[in-house]
């Protein structure tokens, strides 16, 4: 549980550190509460909703401050979000079961592997990001935005579609 609550604290703190204004504090706290509720209630959808709010707040904060691009903040937010979702899903799927220590150990190793891979990938992507995004012509922007929006809709629909009891929780 602590492993999930620490990243949630970071999801709340990061936008507030960038814009220490009262509305931002309240909005960040709301997103964090949603995440924490999801983590406590073992609801991946709720934790995901809180995470979506945290991403939006962070994006709004960096737009507000017009700060130069910083990979460090984005990496830490992405990693925190990943840990919140994975931790919540882990608690949910094995709730009530007797979990052997080896399972927890292997899971921690898996998370460490993904986080390490993400850091390496971001170092590479950070170097190429300017060329990939800012040099692209405007029709590519529109296509990418439309595809992303479609992805949001498809993901949200799939997330809300009820599953049979036999499906994994």
């Amino acid at each position: 549980m602590i492993l999930v609550l620490i990243p949630i604290a970071w999801l709340v703190a990061l936008p507030v550190l960038l814009v220490p204004a009262r509305p931002m504090v309240w909005l960040a706290l709301a997103a964090g509460t949603l995440c924490a509720t999801g983590a406590i209630a073992r609801s991946v959808a709720l934790a995901g909703a809180g995470g979506a709010g945290a991403i939006a707040l962070y994006t709004a904060a960096i737009l507000w401050t017009a700060a130069p691009p910083s990979a460090l903040g984005a990496v830490s937010l992405g990693v925190a979000l990943f840990l919140v979702l994975e931790g919540t899903a882990f608690r949910r799927r094995f709730h009530g079961a007797s979990v052997r220590p080896a399972v927890v150990w292997r899971q921690a190793l898996h998370w460490a592997g993904v986080v390490s891979a993400a850091i390496v990938a971001i170092v590479v992507v950070d170097g190429l990001s300017g060329a990939l995004v800012f040099a692209a012509p405007s029709p590519v922007y529109a296509t990418l935005a439309a595809a992303s929006a479609l992805g949001v809709v498809v993901g949200a629909v799939a997330m809300l579609t009820p599953r049979g009891e036999a499906g994994p929780r």
């Binding site: 991403i55 962070y58 990979a71 992405g78 950070d126 995004v133």
Partner: peptide
């Protein structure tokens, strides 16, 4: 670009 980097993990 930061918003894109969040999605990487």
């Amino acid at each position: 670009v930061e918003a894109l980097l969040i999605a990487v993990p």
